[in-house]
Design a protein around this nucleic acid. Structure first.
Length: 551
DNA sequence: CACCAACAACGG
DNA sequence: TGCGCCGTTGTTGGTG
């Protein structure tokens, strides 16, 4: 293959697909225009990466690392087909969840050859992403195999409209994930540091405990009358036992019920020790650089399609440190989360008009409050809490306590919704597969899952899967729609954080109100794209704030 | 010393 | 019968 002239991608090709592979050795992008079915319509071109223009095409690439490198070179894509993400969806749909999904594996599968395991994932690194860090052996061969695997995936997807849409949404998620990482979550190290000092006392010089923890540990020891390491569950159990209190564990809610002078300082210690260990100065130094926290988002990292993250625990940012997430000078955050997403998703999935109606359609609608009135009548004490418990029990599969009675009540009022989760549970117990709205597929049963206790556990898993996976699907579309709407509006606000049903945008103050408006538009659009005509509304109220801590 | 399981706490 | 789903991260305390 000889490199062609600089690409003059035709107007027709612009509406189609462009296979993109970076030749790290030569520092160019190899691109090959494809028709919608994935067949090449033009020769391979070698383009300097910075000159690549991906607008108007769906970029076909190996995995997120390609886009990470493109972003680092200042190139943005509009739409994508991420071979690795799509292969994962297809493999799971075939009931082989967990099988290798990298390009090499996909190519081997295509050739009927033994499927090699995926390469180990790269370790997260503090270095900025290097564009040409690693030479790719035989880039032309890789591009050819990329085109072949893509064509095969297209043939599969053509036969399954749901999966085809899911593939597009998953790939869009891949784009958003890399762009959020590139953008970074604004994080004020000075605010975080002040907050730590306020809670823990001045930062210790070495790796020792900060003053406040030392003082509380001493109080615990004094209360027990002997040396105790409050970080050690085993020592705490022994200390309580010697004081005449046998405990099943040292969880906070267990300790809280004990009447002993060590309890108060111990609870305070556990609280602050958690802050110090998980989000203290060490976390700050490791994960926040130049005012940004850049976690690596792993799209589809959870079997349900939820995202995972690597590095810094981005999906567990405790409320205590959220004040450090502050907009830049002259900027604002737009903070939005979908209201009671999972029960609303269930209502739409089941076509349960009654549950949809109980959820309400107003921006401030509260499904649990509406349900409380439906189930228990108006003004029943704790009605909302009980309604919430009933719904979550139905989705999670809990049958203990009051949940059984609540479930019976739900079944009478919302038979369609309950039937969906109960059928999913039955399928799981019988070892069958269950799927999300568009066809994301749960892992197959494993040997031993027919044992009653295991079968029931799998039933709870599949019961939850159909709802959680469809909710994750909705969230993918929301992200893609919001990104597209911001782009079309020329709004400079950027997605900077995403957590299951919640987004943060960051942008100039003047752009924030419009961005906040677009959130509900994107949510409505996602609901319509995923479910078509449905009485279900998913409210996603957005607020313009300076700090993530503002509630 | 590296590795791993159990525990605990955070998030949805 | 026994019974809520999905994760990440850090510490302890054991193992080889």
């Amino acid at each position: 293959m000889s490199p062609g002239p600089a690409p003059r991608v035709s107007a027709a090709a612009r509406t189609a697909r462009l296979a993109v592979h970076l030749d790290h050795e030569r520092g160019v992008a190899l691109v090959r225009p494809l028709d919608p079915a994935g067949e090449p319509v033009d020769a391979v071109c070698a383009v300097p990466v910075a000159e690549l223009d991906l607008r108007g095409t769906r970029s076909v690439w190996r995995n997120a690392r390609t886009y990470r490198a493109l972003l680092a070179a200042g190139v943005r894509a509009e739409r994508a087909h991420d071979l690795e993400l799509v292969e994962g969806l297809l493999v799971a749909a075939d009931g082989a969840s967990g099988a290798p999904r990298g390009l090499a594996a996909a190519a081997a599968r295509l050739a009927g050859a033994p499927v090699p395991p995926d390469e180990e994932r790269e370790e997260p690194t503090d270095e900025p992403p290097a564009l040409f860090r690693r030479a790719e052996p035989d880039p032309a061969g890789t591009l050819a195999s990329l085109v072949a695997v893509h064509a095969a995936q297209q043939r599969r997807l053509a036969a399954d409209p749901g999966l085809r849409t899911l593939a597009a949404a998953e790939s869009a998620g891949g784009i958003v994930a890399e762009e959020m990482r590139a953008e970074g979550l604004p994080w004020r190290a000075d605010v975080h540091d002040a907050l730590l000092t306020e809670a823990l006392g001045p930062r210790p010089a070495g790796h020792g405990r900060p003053p406040r923890l030392l003082a509380l540990a001493a109080e615990v020891e004094a209360a027990f009358g002997r040396p105790v390491n409050p970080d050690s569950p085993a020592e705490l159990l022994r200390a309580f036992a010697r004081a005449g209190v046998e405990l099943p564990s040292t969880r906070s809610w267990v300790i809280r019920q004990v009447d002993h002078p060590a309890v108060a300082p111990l609870l305070a210690y556990k609280d602050l020790a958690r802050l110090h260990a998980a989000h203290g100065w060490s976390w700050l130094r490791t994960w926040v650089h130049e005012g940004r926290f850049r976690p690596e988002y792993v799209v589809g990292g959870v079997v349900s399609g939820r995202w995972a993250t690597r590095g810094g625990g981005a999906l567990q940012i405790p409320r205590a440190v959220r004040a450090a997430v502050r907009a830049d000078e002259g900027h604002r955050l737009v903070m939005a989360d979908a209201a009671q997403l999972e029960p609303r998703i269930l209502a739409a999935l089941a076509g349960d008009a009654e549950l949809a109606r109980a959820g309400g359609r107003e921006r401030g609608s509260d499904l649990y409050a509406g349900l409380a009135a439906e189930l228990f009548g108006p003004n029943v004490p704790d009605g909302r809490a009980r309604a919430k418990l009933a719904v979550l029990s139905a989705i999670y599969g809990q049958t203990s306590g009051d949940a059984g009675a609540h479930l019976a009540l739900l079944r009478r009022r919302f038979p369609a919704a309950v039937a969906v989760v109960e059928e999913a549970a039955r399928a799981g117990e019988e070892g069958r597969l269950v799927r999300s709205r568009w066809g994301r597929t749960c892992p197959p049963a494993r040997p031993g899952d027919e044992v009653p206790a295991r079968a029931r556990a799998r039933g709870r898993f599949t019961r939850n899967f159909v709802v959680q996976a469809t909710a994750a699907e909705w969230a993918l579309v929301l992200l893609a729609e919001l990104r597209a709407m911001l782009g079309r509006a020329g709004n400079p606000s950027r997605l900077v954080f995403f957590q299951h049903d919640e987004v943060l945008l960051h942008g100039p103050t003047g752009a924030a109100p419009e961005a906040a408006e677009l959130v509900q538009d994107a949510a409505d659009s996602a609901t319509r794209i995923l479910f078509g005509a449905t009485p279900v509304r998913i409210p996603m109220p957005a607020r313009v704030v300076e700090s993530y801590a503002e509630k």
